[in-house]
């Protein structure tokens, strides 16, 4: 689809040698734009750190505080160390999801390669945190599970479960955003096709755009909250505040909330 209507960044993509097109597509260029944009905003927001925050510094302080608080609530005390990963994920996906609503841009997350990259990043991040937190033996024992004699079954089940997580993250985000973008495009095309009959342009894709404004943040939040849940599940409260026996496991509660949503 992007080859059909492209974006303002397509000239940059066209400038790249053809040999790089196996590694860099049009959406990669769009993600670079988002990376530069977010970095510039972060730099501008914290360049002059005032005692009393103003402007962008206020935004970043609110955002970082919220992410750190979310990590503490979702994963446990001391989980602020995961805030950069989770916070970067959320704002990156959010901006990419909404970028398609800006005229002249596309939504990078409608590419499976972008969502798969994010999901794989989360997957490797989760495994890394698991090894660091539990130690190599503890990490392996996490796959072995209990009782020990069920290890031949537990290990494949756990491995499949771990591999299913990035797959579900990638496909969910890709499916939602691709579907939403496609719906907007088709409805816009329908509006254009109606012009010869009604003689006035009708924004029939308006509802889809409004829906996109809701779905974009929701999908970003789901990706973010599930990533936090995966970290919680692999670290299993080690190094964090132990959750009480009678209370639901935070990761399970998160999964239930996502399912309900």
């Amino acid at each position: 689809m992007h080859e059909e209507h492209g974006s303002w960044l397509k000239p940059i993509y066209d400038l790249l040698p053809a040999s790089t097109h196996h590694f860099i597509d049009h959406y990669v260029v769009l993600t670079w734009f988002v990376i530069v944009l977010l970095t510039a905003l972060a730099w501008a927001g914290t360049r002059h750190r005032a005692r009393v925050p103003r402007g962008l510094q206020t935004f970043w302080e609110i955002y970082v505080t919220w992410v750190r608080g979310f990590c503490r609530e979702q994963i446990g005390e001391g989980a602020e160390k995961y805030a950069p990963l989770l916070g970067t994920l959320f704002i990156y996906i959010l901006v990419m999801n909404l970028l398609g609503l800006v005229p002249g841009f596309l939504t990078p997350t409608m590419s499976i390669n972008v969502t798969a990259a994010l999901a794989l990043s989360v997957f490797f991040g989760v495994q890394y945190f698991g090894i660091v937190t539990l130690g190599p033996v503890g990490y392996i024992m996490h796959f072995v599970g209990e009782p020990l004699w069920l290890a031949p079954i537990n290990i494949p089940v756990h491995i499949i479960g771990e591999l299913a997580k990035p797959l579900s993250l990638a496909v969910r985000l890709f499916g939602n955003m691709f579907g939403e973008e496609t719906a907007i495009f088709r409805m816009a095309a329908l509006g254009a096709a109606l012009i010869p009959f009604v003689h006035v342009p009708i924004p029939v894709h308006f509802i889809n755009v409004m829906l996109h404004l809701i779905i974009g943040p929701i999908q970003a939040f789901i990706f973010f909250i599930l990533s936090a849940a995966y970290i919680q599940m692999v670290t299993d409260g080690h190094g964090h505040e132990e959750h009480k026996e009678h209370e639901a496991h935070p990761a399970e509660a998160t999964m239930a909330r996502v399912d309900a949503a």
Partner: peptide
């Protein structure tokens, strides 16, 4: 290949943020 580049981009953004 594109996935790897995107992952590198994300890691870069993570480091920058």
């Amino acid at each position: 290949g594109i996935i790897l580049v995107n992952m590198a981009g994300f890691v870069l953004l993570l480091a920058l943020l």
